[in-house]
């Protein structure tokens, strides 16, 4: 397998043929902000948080193959401004009330916003009306927090072989749906053993009766910023 090097913010990063910029950066211990990327799944390239400049051209680093000699910029003032704006878009698109969210402290959206110093949502809120689905005996779906990253879709389809989740609608009306005529999670074959039950980066797919189990101060991103632990195994209970 052939290898090469590119530079990330001036530092040499080695890569193997076929690796994306994101994969090579993570292997080298470098953090590029991201939400829809997860090392265990096929890259999706939709959240665009990981946008970098490759030889001056903007591209998503999770889908862009690394190329030898490329000059990649990531941690610059201008790029982080764009990322912050993308985060702000995600925050105003849904209903993200961190103080009352069980995922707070373990949420990648929140932690990424901390990392990038997002002090406010900046834009006018959409305040959409998205009813929760509490039909399932063990799990709650709170669509208010969905960022449409498709990780649960990929996990259910590619790992669980179930297709419990999908995106329907279009544009700003894009929404997460479940595999049941009733539209209710309880009427799908979703189960706690599914990979899809454990990949949501935000607080949509939640185990019932387990909320707020960790005290403030002891949660994943209380302990370390997300740049230090981009994909911690979030312990349940």
């Amino acid at each position: 397998m052939s290898e090469g090097n590119f530079t990330l913010d001036g530092e040499d990063i080695p890569f193997q043929e076929g690796q994306t910029i994101m994969q090579a950066a993570m292997a080298a211990g470098k953090y590029i902000p991201h939400l829809c990327y997860h090392p265990e799944f096929k890259p999706h390239g939709s959240c665009k948080l990981c946008t970098v400049r490759v030889n001056g051209r903007a591209t998503a680093s999770c889908t862009q193959r690394a190329a030898s000699g490329a000059v990649v910029e990531s941690n610059t003032h201008a790029i982080n401004d764009e990322r912050r704006a993308l985060l702000q878009m995600l925050f105003v698109e849904g209903n993200h009330f961190c103080p009352s969210c069980e995922k707070s402290g373990n949420c990648q959206l929140q932690a990424t916003a901390y990392e990038l110093g997002m002090m406010s949502p900046h834009y006018d809120h959409f305040f959409p009306n998205r009813p929760v689905d509490a039909s399932h005996p063990e799990y709650l779906l709170d669509f208010n927090r969905c960022i449409l990253c498709s990780l649960c879709i990929r996990a259910s389809r590619d790992v669980d072989g179930k297709n419990v989740f999908a995106l329907s609608g279009r544009g700003i009306k894009t929404r997460l749906i479940v595999n049941a005529k009733s539209g209710r999670l309880a009427d799908t074959n979703f189960s706690e053993a599914d990979k899809a039950a454990h990949v949501c980066p935000v607080g949509v797919i939640l185990k019932k009766r387990k909320g707020f189990a960790q005290p403030i101060g002891g949660r994943t991103f209380d302990l370390n910023p997300i740049s230090a632990t981009p994909h911690p195994t979030i312990k349940e209970g």
Binding site: S46, M89, L90, L148, L167, G171
Partner: peptide, 9 residues
């Protein structure tokens, strides 16, 4: 189409 954050929102 709603796929990416910047265009969707």
């Amino acid at each position: 189409c709603g796929f990416c954050t910047p265009c969707r929102v």
